[in-house]
Design a protein around this nucleic acid. Structure first.
Lengths: 195, 195
DNA sequence: GCATTTTTGGACCAAATGGTCGTCAAATTG
DNA sequence: CAATTTGACGACCATTTGGTCCAAAAATGC
């Protein structure tokens, strides 16, 4: 027998929970906040996700998946490589300006808060950075083969550099958001690395 | 009348507290942990520092002061500019390798955890980044005037770029520490910006 | 030695924490 | 419809949280 079906959509709940974790971080988010955001009762939440930690992992997975989806869209191999990279950088400029800047990035915040204490989280963060680095490397290798990169620029190193730069922008812009300065930074980067 | 003098050194207590906050973050650090690390009783700690938050601010101030001191040592205007910048970068490579990498950076962690919720913290973090950016800018301007910088490199933009890159390295290396890769990144940076 | 001042340490507190559980409602299936 | 499975809800729980307070001790200055 199937029994009574769920009244709520787990995906919606995860999405809502993600928003709270994103805004407040893991430890600073309390169960009551999660319950209010998801419109769930304690019982339902625990039945569906195990516990706070389990729900957090689901929310983190969602955030990571979204990020990689966007990255893949920007670096679409059917588009012009440099345009793709530029689009990717532009997205980060956008995210490090205005209201979005203050909210920061769930991945960066989680890496710093739990990265070295929670193995399940650590795995996920590590994989994300590996994936991001790999995608950037692929794009840069393509650019290189098309002779669109400055000489002596090694794709995998440049990929790591760009990744670090972008994540660092998210950190700094948490308190020192400045669109034009972010803009100038990525422009300077392109000027130095692209032909 | 003077009354009974303190039995402990507040600076030592701050130092110990800083270590705990550095390892665990603000919210994840409990009073008992702080008491054990500082060897203080509740009463003494509250009399001396007000509350957990007050102690945290003192610890953060200490960490920031130490960081700026090191930066000033590296970028000493009496030394060769490029050597100074190189030393500064090398220090970050060191800090993003091995055990230190997992511990991360208290400033970055705090920026992400409290940067947009705690005004006193926000101020301190903002000032730190401003200070770091200013010092890098000054150094780069000096390099520029000595014609040691690649043409078209604008000091203040490059300073912001380097700062973001370094802080980003601390984020990424929290879970993906790799000395040779950090090394390669800063080398690539220098290759592209210095003459 | 005495009075005063300050520190110390821990008992104590209210509030909030994450988590469990039992009861009732609801939908499905035969 | 009846039986059964499952979900929803909120009361309840032990623990831990950050914080207060007070009695005792210790060092000072007179």
């Amino acid at each position: 027998m199937r029994g009574r079906p769920r009244e709520f959509d787990p995906d919606d709940a995860i999405e809502s929970a993600m928003g709270v974790f994103w805004t407040s971080g893991y430890h600073a988010t309390s169960l009551p906040e999660l319950l209010e955001a998801t419109n769930l009762s304690r019982g339902s939440l625990y039945a569906a996700f195990g516990d706070k930690h389990g729900l957090f992992l689901r929310a983190l997975d969602r955030y990571i998946a979204d990020s990689l989806t966007r990255l893949d869209a920007d670096l679409d191999p059917r588009k012009d490589v440099l345009d793709g990279i530029q689009a990717c950088l532009a997205r980060y400029v956008e995210r490090t300006s205005g209201a979005g800047a203050k909210r920061g990035c769930l991945i960066v915040a989680t890496a710093m808060e739990l990265g070295s204490q929670d193995v399940e989280v650590e795995q996920r963060i590590r994989r994300f950075f590996k994936a991001m680095e790999a995608r950037l490397t692929t794009a840069l290798e393509r650019a290189k083969s098309e002779r669109r990169l400055a000489d002596e620029v090694e794709p995998s190193t440049a990929a790591r550099l760009i990744m670090c730069l972008l994540e660092g922008m998210r950190v700094v812009s948490k308190t020192n958001a400045d669109r034009s300065s972010s803009q100038a930074v990525v422009q300077a980067l392109l000027d130095r690395f692209a032909k």
